[in-house]
Design a binder for these strands. Structure first.
Length: 482
RNA sequence: GGCCCCUUCGUCUAGCGGUUAGGACGUCGCCCUCUCACGGCGAAAACACGGGUUCGAUUCCGUAGGGGUCACCA
């Protein structure tokens, strides 16, 4: 369906979207998706994507939180246009609009006290009916007010009729105006409320499309009251459903990782994987699953954003992450993994070791679905003898193993050249002579070389470790001569 | 509780009155194979329920279930 306001628009109106997080912690995974959708929509239409930090709640806003949000945005490469705005810089403008509304008779000074409000709520509670503020100051003439008493400025909300939003995601949503009460625009200390601030800022910034979480849909009706009273153009709204945890409730701390920083720093997720995952959570483009940034910008639209909330699925994110790890360059992955490896082995990696890690990447990559697994799979390269051996590897080194390893050692020692092909011939030769399957020989060899029961292909391991180190590790597990 | 929104495989989704209801993750089986992965092939798996319109409904209405929101927070 067409939005009448849009079709009435003449000229090439530039699309302007925004992401307006409140800096009370990290960049929330849900916020990241909201930011992503806004970014995509703006880029898709050649418009602007703005960032505005909603820091008017000074008690809860911190610089660290602001930094965390900017950091997360940069990591996901969601670049914004112009500077990062701070809502707190505009409070006098907000107050100005509140007074303009007052002058227009669209708002009024309300001298109700906290006690009166509390009493009203208690009464509503007792009568089991919803509480709506009904201020007796609404229709008073201004001179009746007690000049020195503290007051708030409330919007004179319409009481008849209904307010309608043609939401790009939710469709037509209507609410009876009787449901809306006179919300506060300016607090008794003169500071603006969120409801006023967003509307004023969005208008001043020229925001054309408000794409945000579903949890703001109810707010939109009240915000529209301000917009109409000021005679400003209504933005196009798109309220996207929230991301839920596996249990179906709004994503929160108890669901584990909610900040994008923990996906990067604790779960070893690549930004392109999270980008792709978040994009597909609540939006689809036919059967496409692996979607590049370029295609995302080319394809993104609001029409295909789903109307129902979606559950966060770590398994699918990891699958995507595995895909992007396999796609990533060996050098980049080595750089990323080195940090984890260094904490695993308790020391820094040398330049040579970083080069070795890069060389090993083609064998390591397909075996990891996050950077942690990638790093753990690489540690055998950097361990020092005698190797620590895990339980399963220890089992592989029992019985006939030392005897077989002695033969392997002899065969490998005899190699004229240290190549995977020759090593394979040698090891196969040992298994044939011993009359056992290759696995019977390869597994003890793997345990001796890596201390683990799983690793990259054993002949690749031999090459990566090199002749000297390989032979020494095998020798450590051979039959001990008496 | 009032108001608002939602409902296709376990999960993310495609579908826009007629399809053997498609894909992906996950699960299971097989293949590949020196282990684990990767990769390949295949399987099980969904339109919440009840009505109504229609020759026909995953589109309409109720019910149920889920979610969101109800501050001098944002």
């Amino acid at each position: 369906m067409e939005n009448p306001r849009l079709s009435a628009t003449t000229g090439p109106a530039e699309v302007i979207t925004r992401f307006a997080p409140s800096p009370t912690g990290f960049l929330h995974i849900g916020g990241a998706r909201t930011a992503l959708f806004n970014w995509l929509f703006a880029r898709r239409h050649g418009g602007k994507f703005l960032l505005r930090i909603e820091d008017t709640d000074k008690a809860r806003s911190t610089q660290a939180a602001i930094d965390a949000i900017l950091d997360g945005m940069k990591w996901l490469e969601l670049d914004w246009d112009r500077e990062a705005y701070h809502q707190s810089h505009f409070i006098s403008r907000h107050a100005q609009v509140a007074h303009e509304l007052l002058a227009r008779g669209a708002a009024y000074r309300c001298y109700m006290t906290q006690e009166e409000l509390a009493a009203g709520r208690a009464e509503a509670e007792r009568e089991r009916r919803p509480f709506k503020v009904a201020s007796r100051w609404r229709d008073c003439s201004p001179d009746m007010a007690t000049p020195d008493a503290p007051f708030v400025i409330r919007l004179k909300a319409p009481r008849e009729g209904e307010t309608v939003i043609e939401d790009k995601v939710q469709g037509r949503v209507a609410v009876q105006n009787g449901e809306l009460d006179d919300m506060i625009l300016l607090r008794s200390d003169g500071t603006p409320t969120y409801m006023l601030a967003v509307v004023v800022d969005d208008h001043d910034m020229g925001v054309t499309h408000v794409i945000r979480g579903d949890d703001h849909l109810n707010n939109a009706f009240r915000q529209l009251g301000i917009i109409k009273a000021m005679g400003w153009p209504e933005p196009v709204y798109a309220h996207v459903p929230l991301i839920h945890g596996p249990d179906g409730a709004k994503m929160s701390k108890r669901h584990g990782a909610v900040g994008v920083d923990s996906y990067r720093d604790e779960l070893g997720v690549l930004p392109e994987a999270l980008f792709n995952y978040l994009l597909r959570l609540g939006w689809g483009h036919g059967d496409e699953e692996i979607i590049s940034r370029e295609d995302a910008v080319r394809w993104f639209d609001l029409d295909h954003v789903g109307r129902s909330p979606s559950r966060f699925d770590m398994k699918k994110l990891e699958n995507l992450n595995g895909h992007y790890i396999r796609e990533a360059s060996d050098g980049r992955l080595a750089g990323l993994a080195s940090t984890w490896i260094e904490t695993l082995i308790g020391r820094r990696l040398s330049t040579d070791e970083l080069a070795l890690l890069t060389r090993a990447m083609p064998e390591l990559k397909p075996r990891a679905k996050n950077l942690i697994e990638l790093s753990e799979g690489a540690t055998f390269l950097f361990k020092t003898r005698p190797l620590d051996v895990d339980e399963r590897a220890a089992g592989l080194l029992e019985g006939e193993a030392p005897h077989l390893l002695t033969q392997i050692h002899a065969a490998l020692c005899a190699l004229p050249e240290w190549t995977a092909e020759l090593a394979e011939q040698a090891v196969r030769g040992v298994s044939e002579r011993a009359g056992v399957k290759l696995g019977q020989v390869a597994q003890p060899l793997r345990a001796a070389l890596t201390g683990r029961a799983t690793s990259p292909g054993i002949f690749d391991v031999l090459i990566l470790l090199g002749r000297e180190e390989s032979l020494a590790r095998v020798a450590d597990r051979m039959t001990k001569e008496q």
